[in-house]
Design a protein around this nucleic acid. Structure first.
Length: 312
RNA sequence: CGCGGGGUAGAGCAGCUUGGUAGCUCGUCGGGCUCAUAACCCGGAGGUCGGGAGGUUCAAAUCCCCCCCCCGCAA
C-alpha cells in the first residue's frame, strides 16, 4: 500500500518511525516549510523533515495545499492512503478524497473529547486522570471524522506535558499500527462521533499561562504541569520580572488565615505560595527572566525573594 | 542585522555607576555541641573574575576595543 505521510513536530515522529519500522511503503513525507526560529531567526527544518531526510524519504514542503497547489505531486505520488499526524494545516477536500482509503489521522485524545489543537495540554490542565489517542477517518470538520481505533493512557497526578506527549506518541504509533492492520484485514469499523459529547481543546494562548493564585493549588499545579516544559506557566515577582514555573507540587500545609493569595509563605528548598481556599503550592523549579532553569533552592540562594513578597 | 539578560570558588548571586586587600547564601572538608540530626557553633580548602603576553592607568572583576560561549523574549 502506497502511504503518504503528513506531519510536522516531534509528536508526528512516533507515528512515522512506526511506519518505517513496519516496513511500510512510504512514498513521500509532507511537512511544513522551514521556518525562522530561535535567536537570530535562523531557518529551522521541522523534526519530521530531519528524520525523513535521514531515512532518504522524499520530502515535500508546500506552502499551501489549497487550490490544487499540491495536486500534481499528489497524482505523481499516487498514495492509496494518507496518514496525517499533527501536520499543522487544514487538508482541502480534494486531498481528503484523493487516496483510495482516504486520510487517517492520529489525534491525541479520546474523541470526541478534546478536539482541536492542544488536546494533551488541556487534558492535563483539566486534571483528567486518563486520556489517549484516537485514529479517525478524516472528514472536513475539525477532528470530526469517524473513529477507528482508540488507545487509552493514564495521567498521573504529577505527569507533565512532556510525559504525556511521549506516552501518547507511543500510544499513537500503536493505534496507527493496529488501524493499518485492520484496514488490510478488512475488519476496520468506523464509528461516528457523538457531537453532543464533543469538547474543544483550544490552542494555548499566553493568557492561559498566567498563574492566578486565587485559584486553589491543585488547579495551579495542573496548569503548571500541563504547560511544562513548554510554553510554561508564569507569574511575576515584586520587581516586575517574569518568573516561569516548570515544576511544582501541591503543598501539604494550609495557608494561615488572612494570607493573601500569592503571598510567599516560606523559602526553604522550595517556594511556598498561598493560594485560594487556604491551599498552598510549592514551586520546585523556576525559570527567571533572562536566565536558565534552576531549582527553587538555587533561585532562593540568589536572594531574589523574601518571605512575605507577593507573586502575581 | 528582530528585542533583551549574562559569563566572578562545585551551585545560585553581589561587587562594576564613583578603578585600589574578591564578598554573600549553599555545598564540601575538619572539629565541636547533641541520644541524634538535613539543626546549631568553630575552623579550613577552593577563584588565571569567559578569552585576547589588547588599550587606558601607578593600579582593571571594575573604564575602552576585539573574539568566544550561554540564556530569556518573540516567532
Amino acid at each position: 500500500m502506497r502511504i503518504l505521510f503528513m506531519g510536522t513536530p516531534e509528536y508526528a515522529l512516533f507515528a512515522l518511525k512506526a511506519l518505517v519500522a513496519a516496513g511500510e511503503q512510504i512514498v513521500g513525507v509532507v511537512t511544513q516549510p522551514d521556518k525562522p526560529k530561535g535567536r537570530g531567526y535562523e531557518l529551522c527544518p521541522p523534526p519530521v523533515k530531519v528524520y525523513a531526510m535521514e531515512q532518504g524519504l522524499p520530502v515535500y514542503q508546500p506552502a499551501t495545499l489549497k487550490n490544487g497547489a499540491f495536486d500534481e505531486e499528489l497524482k505523481a505520488l499516487a498514495p492509496d492512503l494518507i496518514v496525517v499526524v499533527a501536520y499543522g494545516k487544514i487538508l482541502p477536500q480534494t486531498v481528503l478524497d484523493f487516496p483510495k482509503f482516504g486520510c487517517i489521522n492520529v489525534h491525541g485524545s479520546i474523541l470526541p473529547e478534546y478536539r482541536g489543537a492542544a488536546p494533551m495540554q488541556r487534558a492535563i490542565i483539566d486534571g483528567k486522570t486518563e486520556t489517549g489517542v484516537t485514529t479517525m477517518q478524516m472528514a472536513a470538520g475539525l477532528d470530526t471524522g469517524d473513529m477507528l481505533v482508540k488507545v487509552k493512557v493514564p495521567i498521573g497526578e504529577n505527569d507533565n506535558f512532556e510525559d504525556i506527549h511521549d506516552r501518547l506518541g507511543v500510544a499513537g504509533a500503536e493505534a496507527l499500527t493496529e488501524t493499518l492492520a485492520r484496514l488490510r484485514a478488512g475488519t476496520l469499523t468506523a464509528i461516528p462521533q457523538d457531537d453532543t459529547l464533543a469538547t474543544y481543546a483550544a490552542k494555548i494562548e499566553k493568557a492561559d499561562c498566567l498563574l492566578d493564585f486565587s485559584k486553589d493549588a491543585r488547579t495551579l499545579h495542573n496548569l503548571i504541569r500541563g504547560l511544562s516544559p513548554f510554553p510554561l506557566a508564569f507569574t511575576c515577582t515584586p520587581d516586575g520580572k517574569m518568573l516561569k514555573v516548570p515544576e511544582s507540587r501541591v503543598g501539604e500545609k494550609k495557608a494561615p488565615d488572612g494570607a493573601a493569595s500569592g503571598t510567599v509563605l516560606a523559602l526553604d528548598n522550595t517556594i511556598t505560595v498561598a493560594c485560594g481556599n487556604g491551599t498552598t503550592l510549592e514551586i520546585l523549579r523556576v525559570l527567571p527572566e533572562g536566565k536558565g532553569r534552576m531549582s527553587a533552592a538555587d533561585y532562593i540562594r540568589g536572594r531574589r525573594l523574601s518571605v512575605g513578597d507577593m507573586l502575581g
